Simulated scan of single mutants.
Amino acid sequence: MEIDKYALADVVVRLRRAQGQIGGIIQMIEDGRDCAEVITQLAAVSRALDRAGFKIIATGLEQCVKREDADPQQAEVDLARLEKLFLALA
């Protein structure tokens, strides 16, 4: 199942921000920063990645529901795949 890349523009922004945060975390570790600060930043990145994943799944579900010309069997397969992906993030 392909998802419209324009529908996921905000996901790309989130992922780029997370990418920057990860670089910052690496720098924190290399600088010997307090472990509590590092863990706090890791938790923030983890949440950002989870939200990006859930947004991708939500967008996929929305597109499945809106597709009027979809083959019912293919739509069922797509929904099953999305459910499996959702559970992988949960």
Rank of each mutant, 00 (worst) to 15 (best):
M1P: 01
E2Y: 13
I3F: 12
I3G: 05
K5L: 10
K5Q: 11
K5A: 07
Y6W: 03
Y6V: 08
A7H: 08
L8I: 09
L8K: 02
L8Y: 04
A9E: 04
V11Y: 08
V12W: 07
V13W: 12
V13Q: 14
V13A: 14
R14P: 00
L15S: 09
R17M: 08
A18N: 06
A18H: 05
Q19N: 05
Q21G: 06
I22F: 00
I22A: 00
G23L: 11
G24D: 11
G24N: 10
I25D: 01
I25M: 06
I26T: 05
Q27T: 03
Q27N: 04
Q27E: 00
M28I: 07
M28G: 08
M28V: 07
I29V: 15
I29H: 02
E30F: 00
E30I: 00
E30H: 01
E30Q: 09
D31Q: 15
R33Y: 12
D34E: 11
C35A: 09
A36N: 14
A36M: 12
E37P: 05
V38Y: 13
I39Y: 01
I39D: 01
T40R: 07
Q41W: 14
L42F: 15
L42W: 08
A43F: 15
A43V: 14
A44Y: 02
V45L: 01
R47I: 03
R47E: 11
A48V: 03
A48I: 01
L49Q: 09
D50W: 06
D50L: 12
D50A: 13
A52G: 10
A52N: 05
A52H: 07
A52Q: 07
A52Y: 07
F54W: 08
F54I: 12
F54H: 12
K55Q: 06
I56C: 10
I56V: 10
I57Q: 03
A58W: 10
A58E: 15
T59E: 05
G60Y: 02
C64N: 15
K66P: 03
K66I: 04
R67I: 05
E68Y: 00
E68V: 04
D69W: 07
A70Y: 06
A70D: 09
D71I: 01
P72V: 10
P72Q: 14
Q73S: 11
Q74Y: 00
Q74G: 06
A75M: 13
A75W: 05
A75L: 13
A75C: 08
E76N: 09
V77D: 13
L79P: 07
A80R: 12
A80Y: 05
A80D: 15
A80G: 09
L82A: 08
L82Q: 12
E83V: 09
E83Q: 14
K84P: 05
L85P: 10
L85M: 14
L85G: 13
F86P: 00
F86E: 04
A88K: 03
A88N: 04
L89T: 14
L89K: 05
L89N: 03
L89W: 06
A90E: 04
